[in-house]
Design a protein around this nucleic acid. Sequence first.
DNA 1: TCAGTATTTTATTATATAATGGATTAGCGG
DNA 2: CCGCTAATCCATTATATAATAAAATACTGA
Lengths: 225, 225
Amino acid sequence: MASPNRRYKTAIYEQFARIGKAISNPSRLELLDLLCQGPRTVEVLAKEAGLGLANTSQHLKALREARLVQSERTGLYVTYRLADKHVCDFFRSLRLLAETRLAEIRDITSQFLEGRQGMDAVSREQLVAKVRGGEVTVLDVRPPEEFEAGHLPKALSIPLNELERRLSELPHDREIVAYCRGPYCVLAVEAIEMLRKRGFTAFRLEDGVPDWQARGLPVAVGEAR
Amino acid sequence: MASPNRRYKTAIYEQFARIGKAISNPSRLELLDLLCQGPRTVEVLAKEAGLGLANTSQHLKALREARLVQSERTGLYVTYRLADKHVCDFFRSLRLLAETRLAEIRDITSQFLEGRQGMDAVSREQLVAKVRGGEVTVLDVRPPEEFEAGHLPKALSIPLNELERRLSELPHDREIVAYCRGPYCVLAVEAIEMLRKRGFTAFRLEDGVPDWQARGLPVAVGEAR
DNA sequence: TCAGTATTTTATTATATAATGGATTAGCGG
DNA sequence: CCGCTAATCCATTATATAATAAAATACTGA
């Protein structure tokens, strides 16, 4: 009974909604955010996102069916990655819209950071200037695979869980700017907190690599030297 | 039992998912797309989207709770509008991602256009050049309210349902380029089809006003003269 | 071929969502 | 205040989704 025009519109909006449905679940969004940092296996993703394995597999399947991610089997492991870098841009635009529209995000964040001092972040521009002046050590506290998948130029890779025993690699007489996955990742927050307790001068960069890259700033790839 | 970090992340991704949920339903996406063309009452939105009134009201409520739209009562009518122009940008980025990732969209569209000849669209750039050369009449076939809310500079407003009896306003010796809401809106398609049958030289611009505007091109506001 | 590990699939259960029709509310004009 | 209309709310029903555990698959290495 529906006209061809109506059927056409319905079919098109149903397609758009496939992407909407894919990002309508918090767990899937977290997985997507993680995948923006680089490819990972199901196991690792499950652990990082605090989900069950079967559950993670199903969420990844949903993301794959919306064509947002791809999977590839290598031996026992299945590695998932973003299907397209536009997916990361899209995730960022969702995050940006949520930040501008949902005051709750600011509330939740400021409540979480309550009591931790000095969490006011260094801006991209400030960091660029400081790096240019050579007065700062840039510290990447994410897991090594993420560092390898892409990091800020000249950044030093010390994953958060190794930081305590590798403090000697850090300078006491220079500023340290630590970063992790982005504004809602807690790795850098914890790193800063710890470094300050130990007497370092440390600040936090809110940007993650995707944000940095989206601004057209350079990103380096490959292992820590 | 969950750590504060986990609770924080969960809370943040839940917020992101509010937006995801809002755009996870085809009808809501259609409503959002319509609202990108300008504010409208519930009644008009329901009719345009082919939905029941109660249903429309509930979908609009969902969009409002995700802070994507705002409503304002004027007398008997409640007018809905986008809460922020970023919402329109976000919708466009969803559309773009869907177009790049979902081959089905191309299939559905080419099947719909099957048999209609000459539906290959004029590009923005071509249109700009033609307008500059003064060799073209730009025709807006959307309803008048949408034209008023924003239209291409110098466009002539003839809503599709008036087109047949206002053909005398159109030149036979010049090209006509018709546009409507965007690439998936059928108004311009039908206009072109009709105009060609009547011997006009007519092409279709795929862009809608939001697309045009997003490229930084100028948009005029106000009634048809 | 068998044991072991990573992943996917299936079944189940609880919960959320969408559409509909009917009741209710808000505002207008007589 | 009443009747009318636009919009919202509520209850109902059907359907979809999410998490979990258990079973099945896919692959490796012995």
